[in-house]
């Protein structure tokens, strides 16, 4: 049996570096590592970050039942989960954990799947840590409610959620510190 590359430790190390770049430089479009070109970004991301120590919610049923045993993560409601996988085309309909003042890290990370991170009609201007002055991204297939809802979640720093937007083979990070403006 051939093991899909996303489960191999050396590929996960490369994928982690992609995610680290994405989170460190919000709005920069990060491509999957060359060795994972034939994999889906969302699954490669989950395989890299999850194990039995964390919980996940597959909010819009984007995974198949056979994915769960390999990911090892515990299933949880969106209100409790460490990681929430969402379909960006659908409006957000849950309240993720935002952490506490003492422990803002006990907050959810959202993985939001969209059609494309290149082109589309939603242009966003981003500012904040990790961005020199400002940057612009264009996302295709993101329900407009996400922006307002995310804004509600991140408005009282250090509480908040951190988002990773993925299309088939790219990732964009949007930590809680990024200020987003539609343009």
């Amino acid at each position: 049996m051939k093991i899909d590359a996303i489960w191999q430790p050396d590929k996960q190390q490369q994928m982690f570096r992609v995610l680290l770049e994405a989170m460190s430089r919000p709005g920069s479009i990060q491509s999957l590592p060359a060795a994972l070109q034939s994999s889906m970004a969302d699954k490669a991301l989950l395989a890299t970050l999850l194990d039995g120590e964390v919980s996940m919610c597959d909010r819009h049923a984007l995974l198949t039942t056979s994915d769960w045993p390999l990911l090892q993560a515990r299933q949880a409601d969106a209100e409790q989960a460490d990681y929430i996988l969402c379909d960006g085309a659908q409006a957000p309909d849950f309240e993720p954990r935002l952490g506490t003042l003492s422990c803002p890290d006990e907050s959810a990370t959202l993985i939001i799947k969209v059609r494309s991170l290149y082109g589309g009609d939603m242009g966003l201007k981003l500012e904040g840590p990790g961005i020199e002055a400002s940057t612009r991204v264009v996302i295709d297939g993101l329900h407009p409610d996400w922006l307002k809802t995310r804004q509600d979640w991140v408005c009282s720093f250090p509480l908040g959620v951190d988002c990773l937007f993925v299309d088939e083979s790219h990732v964009i990070g949007l930590p809680r510190t990024t200020i987003v403006e539609v343009c």
């Binding site: 680290l20 460190s24 907050s107 990790g130 951190d162 510190t177």
Partner: peptide, 11 residues
């Protein structure tokens, strides 16, 4: 790695 991503997100 999970910890590092949170650390970056909460400077």
């Amino acid at each position: 790695r999970r910890t590092v991503l949170k650390a970056v997100a909460i400077p």
